[in-house]
Design a protein around this nucleic acid. Structure first.
Lengths: 214, 214
DNA sequence: GTCTATATAAAGATAGAC
DNA sequence: GTCTATCTTTATATAGAC
């Protein structure tokens, strides 16, 4: 009796090429890691979301830690480039600050999981993998430079640039990180809805500018 | 031959009474949960930190989820009481706001894990257990009331009280939540050291007040 | 109450067929 | 490259001795 070549009842064989598969695994990994962190995420969950088997994860990335590293790099590559950093030095501190904040908020809106992932990385891994990327130095370095310039020029009030950089980022980002808790407090609309995002942007910029300008 | 009554080589039998044991388990649970979250924490880790066996955890709290609920309640009971909430309405909005911020920062300094735990709860559980406590409503309700009063009195600039409440909390709290990542950026001293904490307090209050006052 | 021992389930990772 | 099957470790939770 001849063998039946196609096994019925199986999930449809992937029509994706290897590159697409790898990309999709990374995307799935970002989603999972940004909710459960490195230790809390299971390869099974990533595999299921990417519609592959666990074995594929290990085939492409060797270990779970390998997927995590790759996901972090993939997420933050091209977030803030040294080129953009240069541009900020050619405009006034007020304009640079406003522009910087808007960029942060915009990237947070389009990639909602990015700051959750960063928070988990800080809390669970003490920034071990974050340190390996140079994005942190770049973001905080750029922001505190803008602040320092503004203070020296006399347009910003006297302040500690490093602490203020952290506090400004906190203002921008906390809204996203704490959404899970705050959604019970904001009864009206979904916090991720476009108009709420716009409100947050408006309020954050007004707050930060008022808090920094002389 | 008579049995040997004491088994040598065993860890010294606990000299604690049951109440102390339960308290110590809760303290250990807060430490572990605030670093790894509900799903990421193992009962083994809690047991080891509390110097008991896993079986004790289940004896006192039935399930891991039970320990988590108990730890949350224990941590937030008496953080902000309705009594304190009342007091804020009897002083000027500026004084109330400054006093509120100082209380938040002080509790964060003395309980460094509290906001990490809240962040993990938001990210990993979407605030499921946070919602069961009434602390959230209390904290954000109190703060946005203070802001609303200040705007109506004309001492604060026009602003959205709810969004501003979130942004103010973010300014206070982000420093603690992101310590793991930021420690690589703050080369000088440990971010949890007393003088760095004082600097953060000073900068946060100056920032918030400047950002809110007319 | 506190422990040891264990049942049961789930995880990361690998081997080997196709 | 992609899958199934399996090894090994680790987790939650329970049973039962003391």
């Amino acid at each position: 009796m001849p063998e039946i070549p196609s096994k019925i009842g199986r999930p449809p064989k992937s029509d994706r090429n290897p590159d697409e598969v790898k990309t999709e695994i990374l995307a799935a990994a970002v989603e999972e890691f940004s909710q459960h962190g490195l230790s809390g995420t299971t390869t099974e969950a990533i595999a299921h979301r990417a519609r592959v088997t666990k074995a594929m994860i290990h085939y492409y990335f060797k270990t779970k830690e390998g997927v995590y590293r790759a996901a972090l790099e993939n997420l933050f590559s091209g977030l803030v480039t040294p080129v953009q950093q240069e541009e900020f030095t050619h405009i006034s501190p007020e304009q640079a600050l406003a522009s910087f904040i808007q960029q942060v908020l915009q990237s947070a809106s389009s990639q909602p999981c990015i700051h959750a992932l960063l928070a988990l990385e800080a809390i669970q891994n003490q920034g071990k993998y974050y340190k390996e990327l140079e994005v942190g130095q770049l973001v905080y370095g750029t922001l505190s430079c803008i602040l320092e310039r503004g203070v020296e020029a006399g347009v910003f009030r006297p302040l500690n640039p490093q602490h203020m950089a952290v506090n400004i980022l906190g203002t921008c980002v906390f809204y996203f990180v704490s959404q899970g808790n705050l959604q019970h407090f904001f009864q009206e609309r979904a916090m991720a809805s476009p108009d709420m995002m716009e409100q947050h942007t408006t309020e954050a910029i007004a707050f930060i500018m008022a808090g920094v300008l002389r």
